[in-house]
Design a protein around this nucleic acid. Structure first.
Lengths: 338, 338
DNA sequence: TTCGCCTGTGTAACCGGTTACGCTGTGAAC
DNA sequence: GTTCACAGCGTAACCGGTTACACAGGCGAA
């Protein structure tokens, strides 16, 4: 592969001039520039971005660290990020923490020198740990994570209000015994959603200790909850799953047990993954524009990179919207509002 | 941010020794190493991967260039790639050609110096153009693309055989008038699937010019095809969509028009996206393990990086499997074999 | 004519690591 | 007591770009 020196030699100029010509700096005469460009073409020269970023101290790349890469949730986030990043000529370096704390540290460390900024989504990490790993000099925006004491900008979904609203809606639809399927124990989203559910049950429904089944956001755990519900004879006329994935498993499990949704029991989820409106009956859920989570975070990061100093005060809270569909007795067919 | 020189100064050794200690080279005494490590801890030193890759001529990163980032298809590919890459300590740099040829060239060029190898999926690019953009010295594996003359290893799905098999199955189920919804005109996958359909119709069904409706792989274009079908009074007892996405739109469109699937008309797709088995009736389709497409390609690339020289001969063709579900009159309920 | 300035170009330092090579001091072999 | 091998460490070159600074030559002003 040709280097800048090769090009300079070929064009009969110095490396400085070659560099200037290639980067379109003003102080080069037209003939000189033409000669350099001809050499570039001839040698098929492409600048080595790694070397370039070393001196420029800019990589035009942002690191994205996600807990996993599974499912539509993450692909939508990435799409949202890419949408904004691409417009600014930024590249995306993917890091995956694969669920382990140790890997998270490694993923963050590996980013040093490769990226100009970081987008991190650490749903089950303690803030203190996170601050140990993070480089304070590296612009960072948190995804779906309110790191209060860290003073980092973040973008989050108002899980509490969303869960509260959904629970309220279920009660308004006539449900009396609403059961919640919780998400992973130390997942923040899951905990906030559970709090919203519990509070709404208490304040709106007048129920003190509503039934809560364990779950882990997986489809399988939703199916398991269905079995618990049916075999355990847990009285319920509505189930609010902490995410759509579990709601999907739940519905399948209930169908197997001969329960009809929504006639015997109503079901609601959270996230509004694309699949939700294609189910039959279609799934009532809290709509989160997942891609906006990514694009908003990326826009915040870009502002920091442009020189603004943003702290936790610049956080953006996205409020999810209730989408009533078939599983809560709404429109029975698929293809309700997208 | 601390540099290696800072660490060396702090530990009272030379940069060479510091480097050796940090990288675990043998020729450093235990006390010296301890001193260096203490300095690393104290200064919070993290090696600058950019600088490191400059001398090592290794970035531990692979570039992934995809036509788009939309939908489950791509997220599954990325997941498959990541799975293998992660095991080898590799990172993923995402490039997106956003549909344009010009962007493709830019995306590939931007990778120089940032990656050790490339995974490219150029579904609607001519081989000659592609070879112009590609750096012959950079290990490259093609995704879902047979670039015959280029002598590059690739991983592809046997679209032709898959489409042939599905068409055959539809005919075997009693369909007489099968209509195909094609994908984008210059998309290779789409063309191969169409060929498979046409050939099967001719050889197995004895039909010369089977009806083919245009499409572009989007759900919307599937819905449009449904309208054409119904309003145009095109006689059909089965529709084979070139991908699942279109099949989904088609089914919704047919439902709106009052047509029942599979009683009035059978429907089949291609890809087996996760959504397929959750539809009601569940969607018959050709199962492609999309994630394997990614992981297989990544494994090929790793072999090249380890020194093996692989050409087009190392190509892997993944054969899709037929999954008969509800939309072709198979098991009517959701949750057929995963 | 001389001075100064401005423009175009070259030299070399630098970014932050790695590593070839050279130097020093120790212990074993003679 | 030399000689020699070798282990441990330092110096400096290098990766491939960018850019501060120096410098040469052309021009207008005095």
């Amino acid at each position: 592969m040709a280097t800048l020196r090769d090009v300079a030699r070929e064009a009969g100029v110095s490396v400085a001039t070659a560099s200037r010509a290639i980067n379109g700096l003003g102080n080069v005469t037209a003939p000189t520039r033409a000669a350099v460009m001809a050499a570039v073409k001839k040698l098929n020269f492409v600048p080595h971005s790694g070397a370039r970023s070393l001196t420029r101290k800019k990589t035009d790349t942002v690191g994205v660290i996600l807990p996993d890469l599974f499912g539509e949730f993450f692909s939508e986030i990435i799409r949202g990020i890419d949408l904004v990043a691409h417009e600014s000529g930024m590249h995306l370096l993917l890091g995956n923490m694969h669920g382990s704390t140790h890997e998270t540290a490694a993923a963050i460390a590996a980013m040093r020198g490769r990226v100009d900024g970081l987008l991190v989504m650490p749903p089950d990490l303690k803030p203190e740990l996170l601050s140990d790993y993070l480089d304070p000099t590296l612009p960072t925006v948190l995804l779906n994570y309110d790191a209060g004491s860290l003073d980092l900008p973040f973008v989050a979904v108002d899980n509490y209000r969303g869960a509260y609203a959904m629970t309220e809606a279920l009660l308004a639809s006539g449900a009396r015994q609403v059961v919640h399927i919780a998400g992973p124990k130390h997942n923040r989203d899951a905990r906030d959603r559970q709090r919203g559910f519990v509070d709404a049950m208490a304040k709106v429904g007048g129920v003190r200790n509503p039934a809560i089944l364990p779950g882990d956001f997986s489809e399988e755990s939703g199916a398991k909850a269905a079995r618990l519900l049916v075999e355990g004879q847990l009285p319920a006329d509505a189930v609010f799953a902490a995410n759509d994935q579990m709601a999907v498993g739940l519905i399948a499990g209930l169908a197997e047990a001969g329960k009809s949704v929504p006639d015997d029991i109503m079901v609601a989820g959270f996230d509004d993954i694309p699949l939700a409106r294609h189910l039959n009956p279609s799934l009532s859920t809290m709509q989160v524009h997942i891609d906006r989570l990514g694009s908003t975070a990326m826009m915040l990061l870009l502002r920091i990179l442009r020189g603004e100093t943003l702290g936790a005060a610049s956080a953006t809270i996205l409020t999810p919207a209730l989408v009533a569909r078939g599983t809560t007795g709404g429109v029975a067919s698929a293809h309700t509002p997208a």
